[in-house]
């Protein structure tokens, strides 16, 4: 009976949780303090040709942080004001501390991050960035930064 139970226990090799830790960034209306949908949003990592978001409309985005460096920059562009027709470019710079974490034997290891600072700027202005949570872990939909527009 005991051997039967042990075999059943050993046979469960499935992973049921996310195995990526992504930085969640939400866009907020600075006047109404409510989530706002930004349009024509394009995001890619600095120095990386692969586009994460391509001219889409989003209230929040989820971005991969670098694991071998403590600073990650993203190039963003979106329609800054309702009347704009041309996207405005910004740089999102995040300073963070990566640390490896074992999720479980079935899921393996994932790189988590602890956020130190975050800024969003271009040559004309700096947007207000609130660090809502410092921990970037493997929870889907988790938001760490809120950018006020």
């Amino acid at each position: 009976m005991v051997a039967f139970l042990m075999v059943m226990m050993a046979c469960n090799n499935n992973c049921y949780v996310p195995t990526r830790a992504l930085l969640g960034v939400a866009f907020m209306d600075s006047a109404q303090l409510k989530p706002v949908t930004v349009k024509q949003l394009t995001i890619k990592g600095e120095g990386n040709d692969s586009i994460l978001y391509n001219a889409s409309s989003e209230q929040s985005v989820f971005l991969p942080l670098r694991q071998n460096q403590t600073v990650t920059r993203f190039e963003m562009s979106f329609l800054r004001h309702k009347e704009d027709t041309v996207p405005t470019a910004y740089t999102l710079e995040v300073k963070h501390q990566p640390y490896p974490q074992l999720i479980s034997e079935e899921c393996g290891c994932v790189m988590f991050h602890s956020i130190d600072t975050a800024t969003c700027y271009n040559a004309q202005e700096s947007l207000r960035v609130e660090i809502y949570s410092t921990n970037v872990i493997n929870v889907e939909g988790d938001v760490q930064l809120k950018i006020s527009l």
Binding site: G45, P64, R66, Q67, N68, P100, Q101, L102, C109, V110
Partner: peptide, 18 residues
């Protein structure tokens, strides 16, 4: 945790971490 092999496909990064 020691000798953790982790890869980041977007940034093309791999490494062994502890």
């Amino acid at each position: 945790l020691q000798d953790a092999h982790i890869a980041n496909n977007y940034w093309n990064e791999t490494g062994v971490y502890s």
